[in-house]
Nucleic acid binder design. Structure first.
Length: 488
DNA sequence: AAAAAAT
């Protein structure tokens, strides 16, 4: 099977072959002819399967005829993250080099001006993250009634990130008569329902079974104490023959700390997370892709879809919270037929997370040695006995965080807001929010009641103090019933 | 729980 047999035009084929691609991937093979026919597509494919080109290439041909009016894009591609959006834009540049298509990239974190100018010029291809697109729409800078082709990419991730309301709003602004391509790595019922609403008579294209970890990835896992993780990572990096690697952390803060630590130890490391400025994000990513940065420490902003050629290693500095993310993270390596390597550092209390992953991928991640370090075992599942029975001495692993409240003092940021908020607020907000959920109604009420009288008792003397100097012994002509009942 | 995305 070759690209030539898919029905693409000569200019597109030329651009493809110049990139050195000769053989379409399975999803490209299946999806491209369908897209060219003008049909809707429901694509179930993970990133790294060549999914992007499977819609970019045929879209270039579809959009080759016709011209865009000012502020009225002819196609729209929605992406969950700014980096992914930028990456799709690069693909249009790459494969559209022999077609003159106008393109605009609407993402947050960068100036509106250039984006507005591009829209004004009229765009054939509009690539956007939902928030910034709606922002432009509300300013009247973009009209969506001329969109002929809509792509919703990474729908499951959009769902995870809470973008679905935005996406629904955007789709409601589009003409009903259009071609829609809907891609998702997984098809949970909620996504399926959404697809049913957005698509009409779609052709389903599924390439790899959802959430199967790449077969050409050699995986390994080491259990080490939380405080030894940085050391363990350094040893693994030194031991391995690393061309380039991503190191994933669960928290943005840890991304920054770890990057600093790696640099201090002489590694060529950069950082990428969502709290960085957009220009900094783009610069780091570009340097990483160019090979100027060897090790990229990143949050899950980079977990899905990031397309870096020939990444040799992925490290999980933390076990990801959601098992699907594990698959996405390690999926950054072992692509395009190459063998990749992934190492996960788990602390003793991260056993349950690892179990969830192994259940999802249907195999045990082989345990590996960290050179010169002792291999620990996972803690037993129930943390309660541990907290009470044993004196908590030296080791302060991350387990303290979850279980032992007395030890929580090691986590300052949590406490400040908590002391203030817990006191008055909940009693008022609860009954409004959760009246429909089965049993809370019954359980919550008594809680509220016991709390309320207590407060009245406290407040009462204060009120009297405020109003009249001597606290009156008699309560006047009317004594509230609750006071009588409570026996005072 | 964390991260992502509009300011």
């Amino acid at each position: 099977m070759s690209f030539e047999s898919l029905g693409l035009s000569a200019p597109v084929l030329q651009a493809v072959s110049e990139k050195g691609y000769t053989k379409p991937t399975p999803i490209q093979e299946k999806a491209i002819p369908i897209v060219l026919m003008g049909r809707d597509v429901l694509g179930c494919a993970q990133t790294g399967t060549g999914k992007t080109a499977s819609f970019v290439l045929p879209m270039i041909d579809i959009l080759a005829q016709g011209r865009a009016k000012a502020r009225m894009p002819r196609s729209l591609i929605l992406e969950p993250t700014r980096e992914l959006a930028a990456q799709v834009a690069e693909n249009f540049d790459m494969y559209g080099k022999y077609n003159k298509l106008n393109m605009a990239l609407l993402i947050g974190g960068v100036s509106f001006d250039d984006q507005e100018r591009a829209l004004e010029r009229g765009v054939d291809v509009l690539i956007a993250t939902p928030g910034r697109l709606l922002d432009h729409f509300e300013r009247g800078k973009v009209l969506l009634n001329d969109v002929k082709v809509l792509v919703i990419d990474e729908a499951d991730r959009m769902l995870d990130m809470g973008f679905i309301p935005d996406v629904e709003r955007i789709v409601s602004l589009l003409p009903p008569l259009r071609q829609t391509l809907f891609f998702s790595a997984t098809m949970p019922p909620e996504i399926k329902r959404l697809a049913d609403r957005f698509l009409s008579n779609p052709k389903e294209v599924t390439v790899s079974p959802p959430a199967s970890a790449g077969k050409n990835i050699v995986q390994g896992l080491a259990v080490v104490a939380e405080e030894d993780k940085r050391e363990a990572l350094r040893r693994l990096i030194k031991e391995q023959d690393i061309k380039n690697a991503i190191v994933f952390c669960n928290r943005k803060r840890d991304v920054a700390i770890l990057q600093g630590s790696l640099k201090k130890h002489g590694f060529n490391a950069g950082a990428l997370h969502g709290d960085m400025s957009q220009p900094a994000r783009m610069e780091t990513l570009e340097k990483f892709k160019q090979g100027e940065i060897q090790i990229l420490v990143a949050s899950d902003v980079a977990a899905r879809g990031l397309d870096v050629n020939d990444m040799s290693h992925v490290f999980n500095f933390d076990v990801p919270f959601s098992p699907e993310d594990y698959v996405h993270r390690i999926g950054r390596t072992g692509r395009a037929g190459k063998t990749g390597h992934s190492f996960t550092l788990a602390s003793p209390d991260e056993g349950p997370l690892v179990e969830a992953i192994e259940k999802l991928i249907g195999t045990e991640i082989p345990r590996v040695e960290v050179p010169g370090m002792e291999l620990l075992a996972f803690e037993p599942a129930d943390g309660r006995r541990r907290g009470r029975g044993r004196a908590r001495g030296g080791r302060s692993g991350a387990g303290d965080r979850a279980k032992a409240p007395a030890k929580a003092s090691s986590r300052p940021p949590r406490r400040e807001p908590r002391t203030e908020e817990t006191v008055p607020a909940p009693a008022e907000t609860r009954p409004e929010r959760e009246p429909r959920q089965e049993r809370p109604v019954r359980e919550r009420r008594p809680e509220g009641r016991t709390e309320r009288p207590a407060r009245h008792q406290e407040r009462r003397p204060e009120r009297h103090r405020d109003r009249d100097e001597p606290v009156p012994m008699g309560l006047g002509d009317h004594v509230p019933a609750f006071l009588m009942r409570s026996g005072r």
